[in-house]
Amino acid sequence: MGIFEKLMKIDRRYIFVMIAVAIILPTIYEVRMKIDISEPVKRIYDRVESLKPGSVVLISNDYDPAAKAELYPMTLAVLRHCFRKNLKVLAMNLWPQGAGLVRMALSTAAKEYKKENGSDYVFLGYKPGGAVVIIGMGQNLLGTFPKDADSKPLAELPLIKEKGIKTLKDIPLVIAIGAGVPGIDAWVVYGKDQYGFSLVGGCTGVMATDYYPYLNSGQLSGLMGGLKGAAEYETLVGRPDEATRNMSPQSFSHLVIIAFVILGNIALIVEKSKKKRR
């Protein structure tokens, strides 16, 4: 059996082991790589930067722990940016399983920038209904979320009173970080086009290609895709964290996959030509 024939019949578990090694070694030895900033991510950063201190930003975190690796670093980086700019943050979930993660991100970022719950940020919590929730918020935000996640009446919270927030029209920027349905699509279809706020998005790598047309049409003002997007945002904010650390193992694992794709194709071509000759 020739080398290429062996390669064609390689046990897939050898590939798993090689990928594991490609991830474990750079993780242990903390190999760092330069993160280049892409235009769609830069546009999110610039949009947040363009807001005046005290402006309200709504962050909708529509994901669950299965997408934590990619989307939690995005949430944290965006929160750090907002708090550094002294923006007021409303956070919410359209997915029930993401509530704990958002609470964790809020408390981490708030502690770092000494922000107060109720006056600097409000966690609205989870509301079932997806698109219906967005439409409801567009008509009457306090009616859709009468209480925050800690069961405090929303209308009595300093942030809501001070800013006079009644509907989505009172919010200049919505950041939708989503892993599926309901998520960015729902915010584009039922929110942005209806109520006219500026919308930027963050999504898992799997979904990124679906959202690029929204960038082209201007329905999304910026987009972060997958771990790379999160790492870019961390770099822009100047707080390299989990996503930035995970980019070098990511690159090494990609190199292994690329090598196997090339080798696999060479083996296929060689074997095919051998068969033809026979």
Partner: peptide, 18 residues
């Protein structure tokens, strides 16, 4: 993009384990 996403999940788990 799908490969990148799946690798991200694996990396996060390996980082947790290590």
């Amino acid at each position: 993009y799908t490969v990148m996403a799946r690798m991200s999940l694996l990396i996060e788990r390996i980082r947790f384990l290590l």
